[in-house]
Nucleic acid binder design. Structure first.
Lengths: 255, 255
DNA sequence: TTAACGGATGAATCTTGGC
DNA sequence: GGCCAAGATTCATCCGTTA
């Protein structure tokens, strides 16, 4: 209890702001046991099977054919699986430290990295609680000849120790198509994010260290929760900051 | 081509029959490169967090509260994760041998064993192609306080080498509720199975070494494909044999 | 015929108590 | 305290029966 009060004070100057910063560095600045939920969508680093594909920039890798829209590259998306796993362990460990007991990690991932992520979440100390599904629905995914369309993304969720009880019951599958135009290459539906943040108790803090266009933080803000996050890419920082109506921040605050 | 012709002859006496036999033993009797799809739903061995729960019988483990319906136990459902993984590797390796080049494995699994299964499928030599989702829908899943309902089961699919091309395109999420009364504790929807077997070329062979109530083989039979499978439990053997209109078989055929 | 009601269901999860 | 066993608990939806 004492620890939480101290943490509440220590995190106050960071709260309700978007930081223009690397995720790992940002998370290491969060006080212990200060946040209620880490809700994020990290780079998957899974676009290509081999190093040559990964060496392409993100927008090259995912956008091809006659697509008109071009997206800004996002960082940390060129690792091989070992490096990606190592890196995930690093930021998840910082997240573990920053979360309150009973706090939740809710993390989007694709089918290719799903097994590695569940390993790493548990290696960082969390209790793996399950896998929810975002069904992108037929409209928004490419058909697959001779097999199953890759129509779903997965939501790995885990807790720091025993779960705190509340009276929220969420479904395990969220069928929702993303409305165009997207603000980010890997944007997630706001309606889904609104559901997820309902798991956070009143007055709680939601953190997203890979804010992208800021959807998860927008959902937290709209729900009346505290929020804090970071985004290293200048363009996406601008997009998210505008959606969050927060003024531009320097790269790092003085302590 | 020669190999396939020989295999076609060698498997003929086993075809379109349900064998009352252990899965590993049954698969080892299949000729090399003789089947087109292994479509199955193995025991998950994931009911409990620790050995004590796993030591319970299947029906004890999964059915409690005021439920009236009782189901027959099924075997191989009391392993810890290491043993389960080892055992899966054994039967998947036999399946690899028995599959034709370009043949598919399509395997149901729950969230707890999904990462282990994808490891083992690849260790057995298959190329992991993706993860499809069976959405049991809200009706057929238990609510979860303070988190996401476990509403989905997963369908890991993989190929033996390069995929053969055909003009079938399947969705990646199958929302369908099971109709009651079920014939097996872990029964899967026939309508879903009908979709999956469409991936098999005309005249092909579908194999299910954990037939249970026989849903997958029924789907294959109805579609006009060849089918072959086994079930070790006498009660489920009877249920499946009746659905498949096949006469009772001795434990093992003479060669 | 339709509407309302109550019991049944869930590849589970959590808490408590005993040794 | 660690490990294990037993009992309590959860609610959206379905389905058969009654009003």
């Amino acid at each position: 209890m004492m620890t939480e009060l101290i943490a509440a004070g220590a995190i106050a100057p960071l709260l309700n702001r978007l930081h223009r910063e690397d995720a790992l560095h940002f998370l290491s600045r969060l006080p212990e046991q200060s946040i209620d939920m880490l809700f994020t969508d990290p780079p998957y680093s899974s676009g290509g099977l081999h190093a040559a594909t990964r060496a392409m920039s993100t927008s090259q890798k995912y956008i091809n054919g006659g697509t008109k829209t071009k997206y800004e590259d996002f960082g940390s998306d060129n690792m091989d699986q070992r490096s990606w796993t190592f890196w995930c362990h690093a930021w998840l460990s910082e997240a573990y430290r920053a979360l309150m007991p009973g706090g939740l990690v809710v993390c989007f991932i694709d089918w290719r990295q799903l097994p590695a992520l569940t390993d790493v979440v548990q290696a960082a100390g969390f209790i793996h609680r399950g896998i929810a599904v975002w069904d992108k629905t037929m409209a928004r995914s490419r058909p697959r000849r001779g097999g199953f369309k890759q129509q779903a993304e997965f939501i790995v969720w885990a807790s720091k120790g025993a779960m705190r009880t509340n009276d929220v019951y969420l479904p395990g599958v969220f069928p929702c198509a993303l409305k165009l135009p997207k603000k980010h290459l890997t944007e997630k539906p706001l309606e889904l994010a609104r559901e997820v943040v309902r798991l956070v108790p009143e007055g709680g803090i939601v953190c997203d260290p890979f804010a992208g266009s800021g959807t998860f933080l927008v959902a937290a803000k709209e729900t009346g929760l505290h929020w804090v996050g970071c985004e290293a890419n200048d363009v996406y920082y601008g997009v998210a900051a505008e959606r969050l109506h927060c003024t531009d921040m320097p790269t790092e605050q003085a302590a």
